[in-house]
Structure formats: structure tokens, C-alpha cells
Write a protein that binds this DNA or RNA. Sequence first.
DNA 1: TTATATTTTCAATATTTATTGAAAATATAA
DNA 2: TTATATTTTCAATAAATATTGAAAATATAA
Lengths: 166, 166
Amino acid sequence: MNIEEGKQTFIQAWGTLGSDWGVNRTMAQVHALLLVSAKPLSAKDIMDQLKISIGNANMNIRALIDWGLVYKKIIPGERKDYFIAEKDMWDIIKKIIAQRKKKELDPMKKVLTQISEIEGEGEEVETFKSVVQDIQSFSNKADNALEKLIRSDESWFLSTLIKLMK
Amino acid sequence: MNIEEGKQTFIQAWGTLGSDWGVNRTMAQVHALLLVSAKPLSAKDIMDQLKISIGNANMNIRALIDWGLVYKKIIPGERKDYFIAEKDMWDIIKKIIAQRKKKELDPMKKVLTQISEIEGEGEEVETFKSVVQDIQSFSNKADNALEKLIRSDESWFLSTLIKLMK
DNA sequence: TTATATTTTCAATATTTATTGAAAATATAA
DNA sequence: TTATATTTTCAATAAATATTGAAAATATAA
């Protein structure tokens, strides 16, 4: 396998993974392309390599910048914007987790707090309360763990993982 | 808030969370409905409560059974099948993780192995190899951790979480 | 066995989500 | 300033995904 085939395969796979995770496939592909590119790429480069329109390229590049996964890189003498991906895998993971926590876990916790205060008695109410409580308890633990993870550096995480594996 | 409002809110929120996770929204809603129901429900009950068609109900119930999140419950004297949800939150989490690992992490690991063997030299090749290696290293660690998690009981998980929080 | 209830399938349809590309806005060079 | 390159927006369109419900298959009761 040569480098071009390798890149293509990676972009494809990263795009599929993105889809599975509820992330726009093209956004994941743009991310993949920038990840494996040694040099900064312009919107035009991305359009050409992924065969997508200018609007699509623009929107997904901006989404990646919002997520903190891609940075603008100004090249002196060049009129176009260029882009580079954050390559530190630990940083990438933390940023993705932070985004998803904010979008998914935080709203769910809010809902759970609301519905944990329902009134009434009987089997249905007991079952409901019990399920909600269990999910709440898990959500809170996950929240703490993720919050800590987002604030940690990789060495802490790795040593924790090693202990965890014992 | 009364029980019916509570259930509705929960079903809604669980469905949205499902969408974010690349899971069919209706599948997540059927799961939510069965989770908070004290009694087994028939396909008809589910159709009526979620206002979905028989085909839709059938397909999503079966998907949930495939995931191990829902069981068939035969009620003597009843001709219809009834369904109950697994209510043990730890068991639910493990089953979801197992499914997603199989569908997402395992194929990604395979691709990474393939593309880590590319030929060539130069900056582009070095960048590519380095990114792929980082992802591979992370994937392997995640794989070990998830594999262990799937095989563990909740008490191990909780004590690990507590250590992790220190 | 036959009659009926229930479940399953899947082509047609609806809905949701992503993409395009022209036009508008903005930035840069001269 | 004007001319031109580049970026951004967003309505129209395309593509992907989910849903319906009639027909077929299967299961149960009598």
C-alpha cells in the first residue's frame, strides 16, 4: 500500500466512524485529511481532494475550528487561508469528549433532575423513579470522570489506565 | 410533574440521546418506554403509546432484542408477545459498549493495521505514519479497557471510578 | 384440519440531513 | 479608491435514513 492509498483508506474509515458517532461524515473526512497532511491545506485543496463543494468545505472547516480540532494558519504572501489539524491525539480526544459532554450529557442531566421530582404513588411511579435514579447516579459518575479527564494531561490518564487494567 | 409527563419527557430525551449516538431515534424511544414501564408491553401497546406503525415497532423491538437490551416475555393465556427491558443499568451500559466496540472500534483497528504498513519515505509519509501510530496506540488501550469493562461487574467498575477520581 | 390472531417483510413514501453553488459579504492588493 | 480573490450564507436540491402499511408468513386455538 502506498501513501495515497493509505490516506484514502484512512479518510474513508474516519468518515465512517464519524457517521457512527453522529458526526457529519464530511466533517470527519476533512478532519482526517488535515490530520494526515504534513502541510497546511487551503479550502481549495480540501475541495479538490475530497471532491466537495466550496460551501460544504467552508462549513465543515468552520465546524472543526469551533470544536478546536483545526486551526487557521496564515501563510505570509498567500491570500488564501490555510488550515492545519491539531495532531496531539490526547488533545483531540479531550476536545471531542468536551463537545459531546456539553451537547449530550449536560442536557440529559438537566432532564433527569426535572423528572426525578414527579409526584404520585404505585408500582409505575416506583419503577419510573428507580430507573431515573439509576441513570442519574451513572450520569453523575460519568460527569465527574469526564470532567476530570478533560482537565488532565496524558501522563495521568495513561498511568490511571495501567492501574485500571490490573 | 406527574408520571405521564415524566415518562413522555424521558422518552423524548432518551430518543434525542440515541440520535446523537447514531442510534435510530425510535429504537431509543421504544427502549425508554420499556425501561420505565413496570409491566411488560405488547407490540400493540408500544405502537399506541409511541404512535408508530406496526412495521416500525416490530423492527425496533427486534433490534433491541438483538442488542440484548429487551427480552420477550411470554404471558400464559396471552397470544401476543410481551416485552420487558433489562433494567440493570450496569448491564445495559456493558451491552451498549459491546455492540459499539464490535461495530466501530474493531473495524477501525483492522484498517489501522492495514494502513500502518505503507511504503515510502518523506515528510508526508512520516506524518501519516505518526498519526496512524498514535491512533493505533490509543485504540489498543481503549480496546483493552473496554474489553475488561465488558467482563467486569459493577462493584469493580465503581471502585475503579473512585480510585480514578482521586 | 380451518379460522383467526399475530408477526414479519419490504417496496413505496415521507422525513431528515447533507450538499451544492450562485449571490452577497468580506478581505486584500494595487 | 477600484478590481479581484476569497469566504460566507442560505435557498434549492440531492442523498441518506426512517416509517408506513399491505401482503405474506407464521403461530395459535378450536
